Simulated assay, not measured.
Amino acid sequence: MTNLPALSAPDLAALLASRLCHDIISPVGAIQSGLELLDDMPDDPESMALVRSSTKSAVAKLQFARIAYGASGSSTAQIDMGDARTVAEGWMAFEKANLQWSGERAYVPKNIAKLVLNLLVVANASVPRGREVEVVIEQLEPVARFTITSRGKPLRVPAKFRELLAGEATPESIDAHGIQPYYALLLAREAKLAVTLEQTDEEAVFRVAPIAEAAEPADADETVAIDGSR
């Protein structure tokens, strides 16, 4: 059984807010720089292009964060996985990897959609620029089952995610950089799902399934898992 370190609700909220600000500050800062250039050179095409591109990036990141980290309505709210796919595609358009998404579409408990998006963030961070991340939604009802695969070389699954998955993290080690993978695995625990990581030299597979169905592939170079037990 793998346990996540305990964080207080205020600490979790504060660290997630820090993560969100970190993600948004770059495009917002670029918008500010572009507007300052336009003050000196009105109608400059390069400055205008910078403002437009950065605005689109900021909007995409905020739309993604609204579902991935936000409350998404009430505690019992459901999310259309088609909407989750749309915000994922918008966010990935400004990221380093290409996104492929296939599978079932349905309204699901919000933590399922949030788990898919948060594991997508981890998968995207694992691959070099120009490579691929593939989301395959195998089943949503009556229980969720899906895989997210990072393809590319060299693969670098974030160390904090691996540490958390192996149950080696402490509360003191969770900072603004580590809070996002922590939150992903917290969502899995709340949804009573198992997350496993299977990694080879050029592929990392993040597999999510009901706890009882989580199995260790015989041909994977390495497999670690977290279950949904408290």
Score class of each variant (00 low, 15 high):
residue 135 V to P: 00
residue 91 W to I: 01
residue 143 V to H: 11
residue 195 V to C: 04
residue 200 T to R: 14
residue 179 I to H: 04
residue 131 R to D: 11
residue 180 Q to M: 14
residue 46 E to M: 13
residue 151 R to M: 08
residue 178 G to L: 03
residue 58 A to I: 03
residue 144 A to L: 00
residue 187 L to R: 01
residue 32 Q to F: 09
residue 165 L to W: 10
residue 82 G to V: 02
residue 53 S to E: 11
residue 210 P to K: 04
residue 110 K to R: 13
residue 149 T to P: 00
residue 218 A to E: 15
residue 191 A to E: 15
residue 18 S to N: 10
residue 24 I to N: 14
residue 156 R to Y: 14
residue 214 A to L: 00
residue 198 E to C: 15
residue 17 A to T: 14
residue 203 E to D: 10
residue 131 R to L: 02
residue 51 V to W: 02
residue 150 S to G: 11
residue 98 N to Q: 15
residue 41 M to G: 04
residue 117 L to P: 01
residue 173 S to E: 14
residue 125 A to I: 02
residue 219 D to G: 01
residue 216 E to N: 14
residue 101 W to D: 05
residue 69 Y to I: 09
residue 190 E to H: 09
residue 80 D to I: 01
residue 112 I to Y: 06
residue 12 L to T: 14
residue 93 A to C: 07
residue 16 L to E: 08
residue 104 E to Y: 04
residue 206 F to G: 08
residue 5 P to G: 04
residue 222 E to C: 11
residue 113 A to T: 06
residue 203 E to W: 00
residue 65 A to K: 02
residue 13 A to L: 13
residue 150 S to M: 06
residue 57 S to M: 09
residue 162 R to F: 03
residue 85 R to Q: 11
residue 207 R to D: 15
residue 95 E to N: 13
residue 219 D to L: 08
residue 34 G to N: 03
residue 105 R to L: 09
residue 142 P to G: 03
residue 126 S to Y: 04
residue 20 L to I: 11
residue 191 A to R: 07
residue 39 D to Y: 14
residue 7 L to Y: 04
residue 1 M to P: 07
residue 200 T to G: 15
residue 9 A to F: 06
residue 190 E to I: 10
residue 50 L to W: 01
residue 77 A to Q: 07
residue 54 S to R: 02
residue 166 A to Y: 08
residue 225 A to K: 09
residue 81 M to T: 14
residue 110 K to D: 04
residue 188 A to E: 03
residue 36 E to W: 06
residue 86 T to L: 13
residue 88 A to K: 01
residue 47 S to I: 02
residue 49 A to E: 12
residue 128 P to Y: 03
residue 140 L to V: 03
residue 73 G to D: 01
residue 9 A to S: 09
residue 223 T to G: 04
residue 200 T to Q: 15
residue 39 D to Q: 15
residue 42 P to S: 05
residue 133 V to N: 05
residue 155 L to A: 05
residue 6 A to T: 08
residue 114 K to T: 07
residue 49 A to R: 12
residue 52 R to F: 07
residue 171 P to H: 06
residue 198 E to I: 06
residue 114 K to A: 10
residue 196 T to R: 06
residue 144 A to T: 03
residue 101 W to I: 10
residue 23 D to N: 08
residue 101 W to V: 14
residue 13 A to C: 09
residue 123 A to E: 05
residue 6 A to N: 11
residue 2 T to D: 02
residue 9 A to R: 12
residue 105 R to A: 11
residue 141 E to L: 12
residue 2 T to Y: 02
residue 130 G to C: 05
residue 79 I to L: 13
residue 77 A to S: 15
residue 211 I to E: 13
residue 125 A to V: 00
residue 147 T to C: 12
residue 189 R to H: 09
residue 124 N to Q: 12
residue 188 A to R: 06
residue 93 A to S: 13
residue 64 F to N: 02
residue 83 D to A: 14
residue 43 D to I: 05
residue 222 E to F: 15
residue 90 G to D: 09
residue 144 A to D: 00
residue 194 A to Q: 10
residue 188 A to M: 05
residue 109 P to N: 10
residue 69 Y to V: 05
residue 14 A to S: 13
residue 155 L to S: 06
residue 228 G to M: 04
residue 152 G to Q: 08
residue 94 F to M: 06
residue 48 M to L: 12
residue 208 V to W: 01
